[in-house]
Amino acid sequence: MEGIIEYLESIKFVHLFMSPTIIWQSLPLLWKGFQAAAALLIIGYLLSLPAGLTAAFMKMSKNPIVRIPATFYIDFIRGTPLLVQILVIYFGFPLLMPGWREFATGPIGQLSVAGIDMSQFVRAVAALVINSGAYLAEIFRAGIQSISKGQLEAARSLGMTTMQAMAYVIIPQTVRRILPTMMSEFILLFKDTALFFAVGIFELTLQARTIQARTFNMSPYIGAAGFYLMLTLPLGRLVAYLEAKLAVSETGREPENRQERKRRKAARAKEASA
């Protein structure tokens, strides 16, 4: 075992980019960074859902006083880089909030969430919610509008109120249809947490960068990449699975999957040899 590691470390490229020794030593700090990123992601995403749904309904409103601010918000956020938004929100937040200094230095501000100071965490989550809310709003809106008008009419013709029709007929169908896209947004948001390294939040990427600066070695980044993949790969597969399942429920037909193709190929081969 030691011999193998020694051999690997002797190869310059392997040593510089994926040194087993350095990655192993980085693991505790990277794990801390992963927890911080995951905490930002989960809290940020959960709060984005109501924000996105609200913005979606506002954008679908017939009333321009409600619709125009939502349209502006969604277009602005989706049309500008997240890094710029983070800088504005992260450093703008304290300027805007009365009593921020007292909060940040007070007992609550000194608490830490997954290793991040509360005063930093709040601002980071605000940036994520404002950003992700705009993307989710468009996902929700497109989903709701993809449900045929006849569904709402059928519900209304049975005496349901608009709210009931939304709750029992439109939204359940929408969620089913947009679940894969919502999960893709979750994955994207996770990768976006890396940008918080720019404002000094010790998430995964900043942890890796700190070790890299100390060792002049790229391996911690590769270690960090491993942590990102730990979440994005299985979730990506889940999205693909959900999409296939959705296709079944929408068309009533099982898509021809890999096993099926293999079985047919085997059957054909058998036939040919017989």
Partner: peptide, 11 residues
């Protein structure tokens, strides 16, 4: 009311 396109709730 019954519609041309049925409009059953597919879920």
């Amino acid at each position: 009311m019954v519609f041309q396109s049925f409009n059953l709730f597919p879920h």
